[in-house]
C-alpha cells in the first residue's frame, strides 16, 4: 500500500524539507500557470480591445465571440471526428506495437537484438526530406487515405527505447517461470510483461496521443483535397491563416472601409484556437495521469 498511510517518526530535517518542497512547488505552479491563463484571458477578450495589450490573467472586455468566430467554419465536426479516430487508433496500435518491439529488445538472449535496435534507433537521426517522403507515400497509394495518419509513424524509435528501459527494470524471473509452464514469447509479453508496464505505457500513450492530436502537416500534405479526411488541427490551421491575412492589401480589397478591416484581431482568435486544441487534452488527461502519478498502488496489484 501507499507509504503515506503509515508515518514513522518524522525527523525535523524531513519536516523542513517537506515545507520547503511545498513552497517551491507552489511557486512553480504559479509561474507555469501564467502562460495558460494569459491565453485563456485573451481568448475571452474582445478582439479589438486586445490590441491595446496589458491583458494578463483576466479578460478586460469579456466575450465569447472569438469562439463563435471559430465555430462558424465548416468541416470542424468532420475534423473533430477524424482527429479522435486517428488519436484512438494511432495510440492503441502504436503503443501495442512499440511495446512489442521493446519487449524483444529487452530480452538479452534475443539474437537479433543488436540488429533490430540499431536499425530502429538510427531512424531518429535522419530523414530523407520532404520530397522523397511525399513520393513514397504517393507510391504506396496512401494519398487520400486515412491510413496515412497512422502508418508512417507507427514504429517510433524513441518510444520503443523508453519502454525497453522500463522493461529492463523488471525481474527476469517472472518470465522464466512462465517459460517453464510452456508459454511462448508472445504470451509472456502479453500476459505478464504488458500489465506490469502500465506506468510507462500510459506515458507513451500520452506522447503518441498528443502527437496524433496535434499534427496537421500530414493532413495538409496528403489529404487537403479530401474534406471527409480533414482533421481538426488542419482546419484550425486554416482559420489561423485566414485571420492572419487580415492585414494584406489584396484581401481587403473589397472590405469597404476601416470599420470592416480587421474587425477581428488575429490575436484573440489565435488564442481561442489554442484553447480549442488544448481543452480536449485536458479533459482526457486525468484518466492517463493516474497511471504514472499513483503508480505505486496500481503497480502493487501485479502479483
Amino acid at each position: 500500500m501507499s507509504r503515506s498511510y503509515k508515518l514513522p517518526k518524522v525527523s525535523k530535517g524531513e519536516k523542513v524539507f517537506e515545507i520547503v518542497n511545498y513552497i517551491f512547488l507552489f511557486l512553480v505552479i504559479s509561474i507555469t500557470l501564467y502562460p495558460f491563463l494569459n491565453v485563456l484571458a485573451i481568448s475571452l477578450n474582445d478582439s479589438t480591445d486586445t490590441v491595446r495589450g496589458s491583458i494578463y490573467i483576466l479578460p478586460r472586455e469579456f466575450t465569447l465571440s472569438n469562439y463563435f468566430e471559430i465555430l462558424k467554419y465548416d468541416n470542424l465536426v468532420t475534423g473533430f471526428i477524424n482527429s479522435v479516430l486517428r488519436t484512438v487508433i494511432g495510440t492503441v496500435l502504436g503503443v501495442f506495437i512499440q511495446a512489442m518491439v521493446a519487449f524483444t529488445l529487452s530480452r538479452n538472449d534475443f539474437q537479433g537484438r543488436k540488429f533490430v535496435s540499431t536499425t530502429i534507433v538510427l531512424t531518429m537521426y535522419f530523414s530523407g526530406g520532404l520530397i522523397p517522403g511525399y513520393m513514397l507515400v504517393r507510391d504506396l497509394g496512401l494519398i487520400d487515405s486515412f491510413w496515412v495518419y497512422i502508418l508512417p509513424g507507427l514504429v517510433s524509435a524513441f518510444n520503443i527505447i523508453i519502454i525497453r528501459s522500463f522493461m529492463d527494470g523488471l525481474p527476469y524471473s517472472l518470465q522464466e517461470s512462465a517459460k517453464m509452464d510452456g508459454a511462448n514469447d508472445f504470451v509472456i509479453f502479453y500476459r505478464i510483461i504488458l500489465p506490469l508496464c502500465k506506468p510507462v505505457l500510459a506515458t507513451i500513450a500520452l506522447f503518441v496521443a498528443v502527437g496524433q492530436w496535434n499534427s496537421w502537416f500530414d493532413t495538409y500534405l496528403y489529404n487537403s483535397m479530401n474534406e471527409s479526411l480533414t482533421t481538426l488541427q488542419y482546419e484550425l490551421m486554416k482559420i489561423m491563416d485566414n485571420t492572419s491575412m487580415g492585414g494584406s492589401q489584396d484581401a481587403n480589397m473589397m472590405r469597404h472601409n476601416d470599420e470592416q478591416v480587421n474587425r477581428v484581431s488575429p490575436q484573440s482568435i489565435k488564442m481561442a484556437i489554442t484553447m480549442v486544441t488544448v481543452i480536449p487534452i485536458i479533459c482526457v488527461y486525468p484518466f492517463v495521469q493516474k497511471y504514472f502519478i499513483q503508480g505505486m498502488t496500481l503497480g502493487a496489484v501485479k502479483q
Binding site: T104, G128, G129, I131, M135, N184, D185
Partner: peptide, 25 residues
C-alpha cells in the same frame, strides 16, 4: 526464438520502408 523474430522483424521492415527508403533523397 521465432516468436521474438516474428514480433520484431516485420517492424524492422516497416522502418526500412518508411524511414530508410526515402534516403534516396
Amino acid at each position: 526464438q521465432k516468436m521474438l523474430y516474428l514480433m520484431s522483424i516485420p517492424f524492422v521492415a516497416w522502418v526500412f520502408v518508411f524511414n530508410y527508403l526515402p534516403v534516396w533523397g
